[in-house]
């Protein structure tokens, strides 16, 4: 028996919104410690890794570890019926072929339940090597979304370079070029949400497809902050930590100059 209840049910909705662009179906691996998901996009260029801790739920019970294969676009449709302040309960039997969603309004005056068929999905688990990233930038999640959306007007590929002057996002296309530089502002009186922290061991300059970064940025409603971790010739890690709940991380393979 698996049962998980979350007062802030909206978090589940936001998590699925942040995944469904990249992943159409995935296994939610449930165990006594929580829920994990690892899935790649169809081009095998990016990987999403979700972690939701059992302690992050108001109630969490999982008698047997198992994968729950779910079509994310179906799940997103079901979650459209979940209102902002609803309490969400997920349930699945150990040998069942479905998952049950229950949405309760805060005042308990409306209760909806939905059942979704589970799917058998071959999961491709990747061993992600521990990386000592040479540069880590932590900034406002909404500001990062803004940069990705704004720069995509000009081109498809963004060069991210971290140097002593800050982190520069550059795009060039047929129309022209664009650069946005964000500087470390930890020494000034910037309010917490707008802080930019740059931790750099050595300068890094890598190129990435903006299309994927824009999809990752859909996770911004989950939390205020995002971290970008870079090292030469390794995938970029874009990490959204969700306080007291878990994290949503994305990996993106770099582009190389051919």
């Amino acid at each position: 028996m698996f049962e998980a209840r979350l007062t802030k049910g909206e978090l589940i909705k936001k998590v699925i919104e942040a995944l469904k662009d990249l992943v159409t179906e995935a296994n939610f691996d449930i165990s006594a410690t929580g829920i994990q998901l690892q899935a790649m996009d169809s081009s095998h260029v990016s990987l999403c890794a979700l972690q939701m801790k059992a302690e992050g739920f108001d109630h969490f019970r999982c008698d047997r570890s198992m994968p729950l294969g779910i079509n994310l676009s179906s799940m997103s449709k079901v979650l459209k019926c979940c209102n902002k302040d609803d309490i969400v309960t997920l349930k699945a039997e150990d040998d069942g072929d479905s998952i049950n969603f229950m949405f309760e309004s805060k005042d308990q005056d409306k209760i909806s339940d939905f059942e979704l068929k589970l799917m058998d999905i071959d999961s491709e688990h990747f061993g992600i090597p521990d990386t000592d990233y040479k540069a880590t930038v932590t900034m406002s999640a909404s500001e990062f979304t803004r940069i990705c959306n704004d720069l995509s007007i000009l081109g498809e590929t963004v060069a991210i370079s971290v140097g002593k002057d800050g982190v520069r996002f550059s795009v060039s296309g047929e129309m022209g070029t664009g650069n946005m530089t964000v500087r470390d502002n930890t020494s000034s009186d910037t309010k917490e949400a707008d802080r930019v922290e740059i931790d750099m061991e050595e300068p890094v300059n890598l190129n990435f497809a903006l299309r994927y970064l824009k999809s990752f940025a859909k996770a911004a409603p989950l939390t205020d902050r995002v971290s970008l971790c870079l090292s030469r010739d390794v995938p970029l890690l874009v990490k959204y930590e969700i306080p007291e709940f878990g994290s949503l991380s994305y990996y993106l393979a770099p582009k190389i100059d051919d």
């Binding site: 990987l47 990747f126 090597p129 995938p235 393979a253 051919d258």
Partner: peptide, 14 residues
């Protein structure tokens, strides 16, 4: 011209 690499070039199948 930019060549998009795949993740399998960096991560191992677990």
């Amino acid at each position: 011209y930019w060549l998009q690499r795949q993740l399998s070039a960096f991560f191992n199948d677990a």
